[in-house]
């Protein structure tokens, strides 16, 4: 890893703990987004960086100094990788502004301390969340994500979709409180291709039934993105990055199901056919082996006596 703290040896116990935190794990830490400024920025770019940072907090780090990082140039990703490794971030958002590429936003991610993929967007029609009134999103919440439109027409668009989901899905969660379903991000693809990103607040209204009626309220920020340059991972590298540890996938639970109607857990019990052969029943005189014979004999004797 380039410049990562794992490459160094800790001198103190605390340092060792810090290294342990950064080490590869079975169940990973949630990805941290680094919001970086390039060599020059515009107010639009600064606004986007600031607001994406505020939406992803606490899984984000904001860097306010200028960095002359140009990841699309030859060997341009090295300083970026070094900076991100130092801060243990694996998602980054680099904003810059030039005459050639005004209001530029590079979104990318790292795997194992090295650049995996990145996409460059041009920001248009940015509306800050300050322009919207109403309640702002709670801190550290896991938002719902809606992808609207046909992303499958272009394989690169599919990759952009995956990257955006990685950025927007927020913290890892195995359980969610339904009352906390309050944030939603919508990513809409339009011809061009252009990507429209909107943020909403979910309002759960009474519907008369068990399931609520959903209303959306715009909270901002809203922006339209045009895709500029991109660099995607080689298939082998992506395959490596997608590899999951063996023990992580939960085992399929058989014969136990959940019925959503009343919220019952239903178990199915399979009973094997009972073997009646060795069934221990109450022993009776009349059912004894040879009892029939003896009875017949007795009858014959009686008959004889009668005769």
């Amino acid at each position: 890893m380039v410049g990562s703290i794992a490459a160094r040896r800790a001198k103190t116990k605390r340092g060792r703990r810090e290294i342990l935190k950064h080490e590869p794990k079975m169940v990973e830490n949630p990805k941290v987004l680094a919001c970086l400024r390039g060599h020059a920025t515009s107010s639009v770019v600064n606004g986007v960086l600031k607001e994406f940072y505020s939406l992803r907090r606490p899984l984000a780090k904001s860097f306010t100094r200028k960095n002359s990082i140009r990841p699309f140039e030859a060997a341009g990703e090295a300083p970026l990788e070094a900076l991100l490794a130092k801060n243990d971030c694996s998602l980054f958002m680099l904003g810059n502004h030039t005459k050639k590429r005004p209001h530029n936003l590079i979104l990318g991610r790292l795997f194992d301390g090295h650049l995996l993929d990145m996409v460059e967007f041009g920001i248009e029609d940015f509306v800050s969340l300050e322009a919207y009134t109403g309640r702002k999103r709670s801190l550290g919440i896991k938002p719902c994500v809606v992808f609207k439109g046909d992303f499958s027409s272009d394989p690169n668009l599919e990759k952009v979709k995956n990257l955006l989901l990685d950025v927007f899905r927020g913290p890892n969660a195995s359980e969610v409180d339904l009352a906390g379903l309050e944030a939603m991000v919508t990513v809409e693809v339009k011809d061009g291709p252009r990507i429209v990103i909107r943020h909403h607040r979910i309002l759960l209204k009474k519907s008369g039934g068990r399931l609520p009626r959903v209303e959306l309220e715009d909270t901002g920020p809203t922006m339209e993105l045009s895709i500029r340059r991109s660099q995607f991972a080689a298939p082998e590298l992506m395959k490596m990055a997608l590899r999951q540890p063996k023990g992580l996938k939960s085992k399929k639970v058989k014969n136990i199901s959940y019925e959503e109607g009343l919220g019952d857990t239903v178990g199915k019990v399979h009973v094997q056919k009972q073997d009646m052969k060795d069934l221990a029943l109450r022993k009776m005189k009349g059912l004894r082996k040879g009892a029939l014979k003896a009875a017949e004999q007795g009858e014959n004797e009686n008959d004889n006596a009668e005769n």
């Binding site: 590869p24 794990k25 990805k31 694996s90 795997f111 995956n162 990685d166 540890p245």
Partner: peptide, 14 residues
Amino acid sequence: PEGVTAIPREKPVP
């Protein structure tokens, strides 16, 4: 449930 969409890990499997 577990996610369906395959999202790359940030670090390799230990």
